[in-house]
Amino acid sequence: MAKDGSTKLSKNLLRMKFMQRGLDADVKKQLDEEEKRIISDEHWFLDLPELKAKENYIIEERSYVPCEDLVYGRMSFKGFNPDVERLMVLMNAPKEEDEVNEEIGGINKMDTDITDEEMARRYESLVGSMRKKFAKKRDRSAIIDREEEVNSNVVDCKPKKAFLKPQD
């Protein structure tokens, strides 16, 4: 009786979660396949030839600014507005500078500022204080001691400061 009833159960019912336990492997497989078929049938796709990503050889540029090398739009003449005149120099300068740099070629603009030696000399005195800054408070006295050792080359045996118990 029970067996007859199970065959008559509908597919939708068999697919429900609480029915899965009692199913045997064959029926399960069949159901899965059916489900897959339904999904693939209902899956839409565009019937188009595959789109190929072609490399673009034509680039579009919508603005006149790069075409005609247009300058900055704010202008002031004969010192009417000094701020704007400064801006004009600033905004219209970079291009010329680039050209100049290209002409010069390898010469770096940085060369004119500070040379490596100058920088080393300047930081010479700073090395110690920077180390002190990053050292812990406990290590600081040691650093100072070591520096003095290096500087004087004399080993002076100062007694380490310690708490002296008052005598009573």
């Binding site: 006149y64 090398d69 247009l70 300058v71 739009g73 202008m75 002031s76 004969k78 009417f80």
Partner: peptide, 26 residues
């Protein structure tokens, strides 16, 4: 665009007349 082109003749002629300030929008 003629006003904003580098070395624009109009601007060069104009700036000789008297001090002024202008803002040119594209």
């Amino acid at each position: 665009r003629r006003l904003l082109s580098p070395q624009s003749e109009i601007v060069k002629d104009l700036e000789k007349i008297f001090p002024f300030e202008t803002v040119v929008g594209l």
